[in-house]
Design a protein around this nucleic acid. Structure first.
Lengths: 338, 338
DNA sequence: GTGAAAGCGCTAACAT
DNA sequence: ATGTTAGCGCTTTCAC
């Protein structure tokens, strides 16, 4: 830490500490002349007030936490861009915490967030999370909390989501219209709100397709790539293999392509797929991949905006308000009708 | 911020403030019995010491900054995972700052980092950066700094890099061996160390292929997707279009595929490409993409480890030490010889 | 328009 | 083994 502080500046200018402080904050109590001098000296020394002293005194950290399962994921990294846009604009700092889909890590991260380190928390819950006491505790410590994408309905705070049910429905309907008779749904969690809503949409679409005799099936994909790959091999090597797949998150698409290549299954002839994905390369895959594309940047941006609105004390807390930003179904070759 | 603090605990237990503080730090001065009671009460109230008060007193923030151009990039997001692994283990917090390749943003971020907010900085410089006074200033304020990937050679601090020259050489050599006669190099910056080293490798490989009469050409790709797309269209629609491309960063690959599709240029028959990329989807592209794959996670991890080693005062500063972790050339169909 | 002084919550000498 | 106290660097009342 630098050895020059507000006291040094005060001495150097023959002014009091409080005058320096006020001048640096451009207070109207201070004469233009003094402000000039103070600012100039501060710039000269490359001085900015110690953020920890300032935060301690003000009881405000100018920092928010973003708690997500993974950063190497196009949805989350784009959401971070949205969050960072508004944080930057407001002069806030963003601490990133990664749970790697582990309940234990999530718990220990959240428990460390109630002590004033951050002014607010933006969060997407891990796929393992089925107990919410850590979140309730955070909620009870009165620190503003906003969920995005993977919300937790047990906690009465705002959430930014996309139209997951409808997206699951449209994806499935699209596969049915493309001629699929047996559609499998690749899941990653029984707990996650988004995954189950997408699943409900899928089920509803199948139910609504009376008379088309569609088989349905939910395949649970484990967290590691290798395990997921095995699960998909098992699925595709079986006698009753599907002719349509809904992949509920982007990391599930590559193993499907790989298994198809390995087993000589032709897409879209023998298998059609829709994937929830924001990857920039979906359009140049072989075949190009039909996707449900989420408004990741906008969801992150909106979540941050709502969090910042909660910082204004006078404003009433937006109790459990849900903001829905719709996703797009983008049709490409992986679902082309034969 | 919570209203319960160390004083509350002290009163509640009839002990002094300092006893509480020491007990919470598991000091050997405190009896096992007292520790028990203190820990229990702290847990009951979900109390942890105010990090800002603690940081102010200790002159240590337990926080590091990661300054990168972009997070929605597989290299940087994987590097963050490596950084986070070691930060988590050491009980450190990670603040992310995004420059979006803007020199101005980079400068203002760095200028705000000399005041004790973080104990150290990990950084990859922006492609616009050609003046290093902000970095020198940070260096002069004695806060530990480590570069990874995009290092700045003007500053005498450690850097973690990969074998960029050799990778550029091998990529080019591979294209030559696959029969290319005119190889274009897609650049994103004239300043960036990594880009120019890869470029030198490219030039050297061409120079070393005496007698094969290879044409070379460097195409500069602007920051936006649309502009890059135009640049590549111009390149590929021209009379003397290349039969080989080295794409120096991953975001340059999709537009090449798209332009080829649009103009009916067949890969790898009429155009072969090698791309510096860590995208998980390269193997399922059409055709699958030959890549130089960087050890992103390991580079992030190593950078963090070196930064943490600099925190130990007794250790000598690792003056301008360069750590090189090699990349892999992974051959796929985009460079298949006809 | 400027200054003196209290105190944010904590840690670490230094008592005892 | 426990307690007293100074002070980290800053902001903010309150006085002048």
């Amino acid at each position: 830490m630098g050895e020059i502080n507000i006291r040094t500046l005060a001495k150097e200018l023959g002014l009091s500490i409080s005058t320096i402080s006020k001048a640096l904050q451009d207070s109207h109590e201070i004469s233009a002349d003094t402000k000039q001098k103070v600012m100039a000296l501060a710039r000269l020394h490359n001085y900015t007030p110690n953020p920890y002293a300032s935060s301690l005194r003000r009881k405000k950290s100018n920092t928010i936490a973003v708690v997500i399962p993974e950063v190497a994921d196009s949805y989350f990294s784009q959401a971070i861009n949205g969050i960072e846009t508004v944080a930057m604009e407001k002069g806030y700092h963003v601490i990133i915490y990664l749970t790697h889909e582990s309940f234990e890590r999530e718990t220990s991260i959240i428990r460390d967030l109630g002590n004033g380190r951050v002014d607010g928390v933006l969060m997407s819950v891990s796929s393992e999370t089925d107990n919410f006491s850590h979140l309730k505790q955070l909620y009870n410590s009165n620190i503003p909390l906003v969920f995005f994408d993977r919300v937790c309905e047990e906690i009465a705070v705002p959430g930014i989501i996309t139209n997951d049910f409808e997206s699951g429905y449209r994806a499935t309907q699209h596969l049915i219209e493309s001629g699929c008779k047996k559609i499998s749904y690749l899941s990653i969690s029984k707990e996650l709100s988004i995954i189950s809503k997408r699943l409900e949409g899928y089920k509803q679409a199948i139910a609504d397709s009376n008379g088309l005799l569609l088989k349905q099936e939910v395949v649970h994909c484990p967290p590691t790539t290798a395990q997921t790959r095995q699960e998909i091999e098992k699925l595709m090597a079986g006698d009753e293999r599907p002719d349509g797949i809904i992949a509920s998150v982007e990391r599930l698409a590559p193993p499907v392509y790989e298994v198809c290549q390995q087993l000589g299954i032709k897409m879209p002839d023998e298998l059609k797929m829709v994937c929830f994905s924001n990857l920039p390369t979906v359009s140049i895959l072989n075949p190009s991949l039909t996707t449900i594309t989420q408004p990741a940047f906008d969801m992150g941006k909106k979540a941050a905006e709502i969090l910042f609105s909660m910082f204004k004390k006078n404003k009433p807390a937006p109790y459990k308000m849900l903001t829905i930003i719709p996703s797009d179904l983008i049709v490409r070759h992986s679902t082309e009708r034969q």
